[in-house]
Amino acid sequence: MTQKAAFPPSIAPDARLLILGSLPGERSLAAGQYYAHPTNAFWWLMGEVTGEALPALPYDERLLRLIAHGIGLWDVIATARREGSLDTAIRDATNRDLAGFAATLSDLAAIAFNGGEAARRGRQQLVGIDRYTLIDLPSSSAAHAGMTRAAKREEWMVLRHWISPRQPS
């Protein structure tokens, strides 16, 4: 099994919402981009949440648009061994210091978990901390095929409550 390392956070100090995945998949790691696999619905879902055409933008601009809405991205796992991209294949994971990181963000109001593995690991790290609203979301991955994009969209739209108003480009 190959050792994988996650990306640094993409976030501004005044973020209100932090979205956490588990560990980037093979395509994302190869591209050096969050949610790079073309079948992953993340950028489409976030476009729906923010009201912007995020999938049509270059990657760096997508990140800037999320930051403009007070949204940050990170992963709950720092490193792990894994063959392929499935969360079920994760072994020997080292978790991030999620509680310590979140404590540095004074405006942070909500933490959303993209998928079950992110929610399980993230919630374990935040036990006893009631400062944030914790939101479990269905995975944006195409591997989570038991739910349609429309059904995922319906659940992801709750994030609108925590985003900043649209700012001019």
Rank of each mutant, 00 (worst) to 15 (best):
W162A: 03
I129N: 12
R131M: 09
Y132K: 11
E154G: 07
S164I: 04
K152M: 07
M147N: 06
Q125W: 08
A145H: 14
R123M: 12
I135Q: 08
R121G: 00
H161W: 07
S140A: 15
S164K: 09
G146Q: 05
T148S: 15
W156E: 05
D136S: 14
S139R: 01
I135L: 12
A143D: 12
S139V: 05
I135D: 13
L137H: 00
H161K: 12
H144W: 13
P138R: 05
H144I: 10
A151M: 09
R160K: 15
I163Y: 02
G122Q: 06
G146I: 03
A143F: 12
G146P: 05
A150E: 10
A151L: 06
S164M: 07
K152S: 00
L137F: 07
V127P: 01
G146A: 08
T148A: 13
Y132T: 07
R153T: 01
M147L: 12
W162N: 01
I163N: 01
R121W: 00
R121H: 04
A143I: 04
W156F: 01
S141K: 03
V127A: 10
I163L: 06
V158H: 11
L126C: 11
S141L: 09
L126P: 02
V158Q: 14
A145V: 13
H144R: 14
R121M: 06
S139Y: 00
D130W: 13
A145R: 15
K152W: 04
K152E: 05
W162H: 05
M147R: 08
H144M: 13
D130T: 14
D130A: 14
M147A: 08
A151N: 09
T133K: 10
T133W: 08
L137V: 07
S141P: 05
R149H: 12
G122C: 09
T133M: 14
R131Y: 13
L134S: 00
D130H: 14
A151R: 05
G122S: 08
H161Q: 10
H144G: 06
W156V: 06
H144C: 12
R123C: 11
H144K: 14
T148V: 08
I129F: 09
A150S: 05
E154C: 10
D130S: 14
S140P: 03
Q124K: 09
R121E: 06
I135T: 10
I163S: 01
H144D: 15
G146L: 06
V127N: 06
E154L: 10
D136M: 03
H161E: 10
S141D: 13
G128W: 01
V127C: 02
E155V: 13
R153E: 07
L137K: 00
A142R: 13
A150W: 00
E155F: 07
L134I: 04
A145S: 15
Y132I: 06
R131K: 15
A150M: 00
R121T: 00
H144P: 06
